[in-house]
Design a protein around this nucleic acid. Structure first.
Lengths: 162, 162
DNA sequence: TATTGTTATACTCTATAACTATA
DNA sequence: TATAGTTATAGAGTATAACAATA
């Protein structure tokens, strides 16, 4: 059995005194969930800024990217993959369809389900957006080396993959 | 200059075939922000389950923990630390105060600001909640070794610290 | 005039119930 | 009867404007 992590954290680092001393956040900073959230909300503003030209929120981007890699899946499968409920996904897809980025077609085999596919415009925008996203991430995580990024992704996926 | 990461990801791993083949998510899974979010929402259900007995949401927990480590700060400083806007923080603090977990006192030096402090009940609950949170994280990240957890936290903080 | 904190309110996100059309 | 998708609606979370009290 590995020993419980119980050792006192080092004294709270005192960053450049800008008037007020920083708060002691050591207990929260020892929690992985807290750190995931903080890192995420640190990356988000740059995402919004760089992706603004495509008018894509993170969910929209995920949907397009998933449809690009998995053409002709139905809404049910997409729903579980992006963790958006069917009612909310319907509305989201309505908007992307109205923008001419994707098409819904009734499946001939099972006429209840709809098969989803990007239009040429959607494919083109998604490709550019994926490039922008990859670049923006490098900038938002400039403090990391390439090895550290790969390592970080490996560790995060250990948490949520299976 | 470190070379751009551009190499093709390995072929999408095909997990135990449970009817439908899994979607190809390699492009999204190469993004750090996406992975942070996925790891976070993977930990959250266990957080909610184990913290339910304290009736504390993540924000509430952060507020209590911050006040435990930093007694007598005012709402302004707490507001920036937890990234909750002053109007929303006021309501959040109202509820915690009504539950007898904290006290607000007008500062004698600057009577505009209020100084915040946990009550004995708040201190006690926060201590227990912190213990529960630390334990739950070990369970939610059971796939990681202690070294990997420390490494992960170090990398995440490189992203959002400073 | 600027700042702390509050009230009121609006907007976005997410969740749920009920419906349709197919199977 | 069960499933894919939709509509309508409610709730939680977040953001903004305007105000009172104090500096």
């Amino acid at each position: 059995m590995t020993k419980q992590i119980k050792k006192k954290a080092p004294p709270a680092a005192t960053p450049p005194e800008t008037g007020e001393p920083a708060l002691d956040q050591r207990t929260l900073q020892a929690l992985i969930g807290y750190n995931c959230r903080r890192a995420y909300i640190n990356i988000m503003p740059l995402f919004e800024k760089r992706m603004a030209k495509y008018e894509l929120r993170p969910v929209d981007f995920s949907v397009l990217s998933l449809l690009k890699a998995n053409p002709h899946i139905n809404q049910k499968r997409l729903s579980v993959a992006v963790k958006v409920s069917p009612p909310n996904l319907a509305i989201l897809l309505d908007k992307l369809q109205q923008r001419g980025l994707l098409l819904r077609e009734r499946s001939p085999l099972d006429r209840r389900s709809q098969t989803l596919a990007l239009t040429p415009a959607g494919l083109s925008m998604c490709g550019k957006a994926e490039k922008t996203a990859a670049e923006l991430e490098l900038d938002a995580t400039a403090a990391l080396t390439d090895d550290e990024r790969a390592q970080l992704i490996r560790l995060l996926q250990k948490i949520y993959l299976n």
